[in-house]
Amino acid sequence: MGAGHTHPLYVHEHSPVHHLPAHVKLVATFTFTVVVATAPREHVVTFVVAALTLLAAIRVARVRLRFLLPRLAVVTPFLIGALLLPFVASGPRVDVLGIPLAEEGLWGGFGIAVRAVLGATASLLLVATTEVPDLLRGLERLRAPRLLTQIAAFMVRYLEVIVGEVSRQRRAMTARGYDPRWLWQLRPLTAGLGVLFVRSYERGERVHAAMRARGFDGTMPVLTEERPAGVRAWRLALVLPALAGLGRIAGLLVHG
């Protein structure tokens, strides 16, 4: 795909991972996450193998950790919950640096934290290597309801237009001396939001008219023929969940 329609989480590169078909990557990411999420938290081996495999995949995708780590902030709420668990859980206690912590809570916290981080990192890797239209097409190929993928596509398409309208509106307000500092000065801003809603609604009607003018009757036509993904693509992509699966088996053997 050409330049131009990238999103902020996308890393422009030409790695083997970038070139994989989107639906293949979606399946790989989903399976990997399921393997990680279903592993009992005591099976540390599973998590270590999964983490190493994921790191290798990130290397192959030529995505820098420095790019991924700040974006992992989305899992912070889970991590805070995981940190609190050892303090609030009941049951037998163990001393860590002189602080009595609940053993059950420690394991619980570890389980939440490791699954959240691994799952989120895998998803980040997916979106860092896949552009939005490809992602949506991939979802469609996996039989996701087309209505949902189309709503998402229109949202992505017109988000920029609406953001542009907001910034033009703000600029016009600022140019006439509007500089809100206090809550009670926000009235014009909220009125502006109302105008924005009406405008977006009217744009929706115009876009729909333009679609009808070209013969649209409610169902999106098939625009690009689907080419089946090659065996090689599947084999490469499924290395990620397969290795995690091996880690899962190893976990069963080691931890019983």
Binding site: H5, P133, R203
Partner: peptide
């Protein structure tokens, strides 16, 4: 902007 609504 009203006429062109797809991603490519």
């Amino acid at each position: 902007e009203d006429q062109l609504f797809l991603s490519t």
